[in-house]
Structure formats: structure tokens, C-alpha cells
């Protein structure tokens, strides 16, 4: 049976969004009941090392703007490029923090630059070993971790 890392991923994602993005969970409950995200913005971070795979983060379309404003402290809405930059950085931080939690502190990974994916792009290969849903004060988030065999 494959080990599941749902709770670890939930904790890591919640900490990253609250500490880095000043966005806090509104409800500890499962946001899966709310159905699939409408028009999500999706970022993917691939990694290789003792285990290879990808982390996928999908958020509601308004969330990257809130995230960028919170991270930079700007008064005005950040331009689109900065919004995606902030979102990719968040995906990168979640990926960097989940890997030692599942593979140990000594494991050395190469984490590739995060990329924004098209909504209809095929998902990363491998087996989904963790999924987490967050309902934040800036919108909904879904995070999935895939490991290659």
C-alpha cells in the first residue's frame, strides 16, 4: 500500500500561505465539497533526486493578485507578471518544504523552476500520493503531489 501524505501536504501548504502570503485558512475542513475550481491558475514544480515527480498547485483566478499584493506590501494591484511570479514562488516554497518531510533531511533534490500550466494541460505523470485543499481568505487552493514509480 502506498503511503499517503495528505496531512503533511495540508500543513506545509497552510504554513507557506500564512507565513509568506499572509493568507490564512478560513476553515480547517475539507474544501473538496465545494466542487472543482472554476478557471483555476495552475503552477507545476518538477523535482528529481532520490524520488522524482511534481507538485501541482491550482488556485482560484483572483488569488495570485491577492498573493502578490500581500507579499510585496504594495498599495496598488500588482501587474499580471508579478502576480504569476508570486504564485510560482509560493509553489516553489511548498515543494521545497514537502520534499524533506517525505524523504528525510539528508535527501538532496534538484527542484526545477516552477512553471505556469495551461488549464487543459495534461497533469504530471506518476502517482498522486497527496492532495490537500485549503479555503483561504483570498480564495481556494488545491495542492497535489505526484511521485514517479
Amino acid at each position: 500500500m502506498t503511503t499517503r501524505y495528505d496531512q503533511v501536504l495540508q500543513d506545509v501548504a497552510a504554513e507557506a500561505f500564512s507565513t509568506l502570503g499572509f493568507m490564512f485558512p478560513m476553515d480547517e475542513g475539507d474544501s473538496a465539497d465545494a466542487g472543482p475550481l472554476a478557471d483555476p491558475v495552475v503552477a507545476e514544480v518538477c523535482f528529481s533526486g532520490p524520488q522524482s515527480g511534481a507538485l501541482k498547485v491550482a488556485v482560484e483566478p483572483q488569488l495570485p493578485a491577492v498573493l502578490a499584493t500581500n507579499m510585496t506590501g504594495a498599495d496598488d494591484q500588482a501587474p499580471a507578471e508579478q502576480q504569476l511570479d508570486a504564485f510560482k514562488e509560493m509553489a516553489n516554497v511548498i515543494c521545497g518544504n514537502i520534499l524533506p518531510r517525505i524523504a528525510g533531511q539528508e535527501a538532496v533534490f534538484d527542484v526545477h523552476p516552477p512553471e505556469i500550466c495551461r488549464q487543459d494541460a495534461p497533469g504530471p505523470g506518476g502517482q498522486c500520493v497527496a492532495q490537500a485543499g485549503l479555503l483561504l481568505d483570498g480564495g481556494r487552493v488545491e495542492v497535489s503531489l505526484f511521485l514517479n514509480a
Binding site: L20, M71, T72, Q82, D85, A86, E89
Partner: peptide, 12 residues
């Protein structure tokens, strides 16, 4: 940092 947003955040 290659992320402009992260640079801003570190300075802030």
C-alpha cells in the same frame, strides 16, 4: 533572487 516579488518581500 530571480523572483522580483521575493526580492521585494525580503526587503519589506
Amino acid at each position: 533572487d530571480d523572483s522580483a516579488v521575493m526580492r521585494s518581500m525580503i526587503i519589506r
